[in-house]
């Protein structure tokens, strides 16, 4: 059975454990460290042409990922001051664009990003840029945690009577039983206060929940036996019912 929970940027325990600046530094150091190591590998004259091409591709894609993160952080810092243009948007179009934008990265990881198109989906009222950034962040996260040779599924659907549309990204990574996790955390909780990432990149979740709240939306996750879905709920456009 899937377990669902919502994410509030003001209620993320890891932020209490680790200063957000430190978390941001960690998140930026990891890709930069990888780029540096790939740069070293290019100096290795015994490296095959194929491995060399792969290293160059990974340097480019990792750089782009870091730049996305820094751009998102900048946007997060300016959310309170900024005025965002809210407009009717097609969730189909948003999902298709993200799937297309992220295909070079997903292909480099041997993953397919698949969009599950549904009929009669209303438009949503959101800021185009922020919504794309949220879904992109979910896909980026899924690419890093999905099992190799598995797919990543984008979905958009109307939920409940709330007139909200849920855009979700599901990966098919290994399922982690709550019992196994609880056992490990219970053992370590009294002996260390080192931070853990709840399900994925904590900073990424902080960014997307900030973006969602700026649009009166909400972010959450559903844990499956064989992976995780991250979702954003945004208001459906009431105009669509007249179309």
């Amino acid at each position: 059975m899937a377990e669902s929970f919502e994410v509030d940027r003001n209620d993320m325990f890891w932020l209490d454990d680790m200063p957000s600046v430190l978390m941001a530094a960690h998140e930026l150091k990891s890709p930069l460290s990888l780029i540096r190591q790939l740069g070293f590998s290019l100096e290795d004259e015994t490296m095959s042409h194929t491995d060399r091409r792969k290293a160059i591709e990974r340097i480019i894609l990792t750089s782009e990922r870091s730049l996305r993160l820094t751009s998102d952080l900048t946007r997060t810092a300016r959310l309170d001051d900024a005025l965002f243009n809210m407009e009717p948007l097609s969730p189909d179009q948003i999902c298709q664009q993200v799937a297309s934008d992220m295909s070079p990265l997903s292909q480099a990881y041997g993953l397919d990003v698949y969009f599950r198109r549904r009929r009669s989906l209303p438009l949503v009222v959101a800021n185009r840029d922020l919504l794309i950034r949220i879904v992109t962040n979910f896909v980026d996260n899924a690419i890093h945690y999905a099992d190799k040779s598995q797919k990543i599924e984008l979905d958009a659907k109307l939920i409940g009577r709330e007139q909200m549309v849920r855009l979700s990204v599901r990966d098919f990574g290994p399922g982690v039983s709550k019992k196994a996790l609880r056992k490990m955390f219970e053992r370590s909780s009294d002996q260390t206060n080192l931070p853990t990432r709840p399900l994925s990149s904590g900073l990424g979740l902080y960014i997307v929940s900030s973006f969602a709240q700026a649009m009166n939306g909400r972010v959450g996750a559903v844990r499956h036996r064989d992976g995780v879905s991250f979702y954003v709920d945004v208001q459906a456009s009431s105009q669509l019912s007249l179309l």
């Binding site: 996790l181 490990m184 955390f185 080192l194 853990t196 990432r197």
Partner: peptide, 9 residues
Amino acid sequence: MLPGANGIS
């Protein structure tokens, strides 16, 4: 820093 449970665990 690992997803789910950290390296210390």
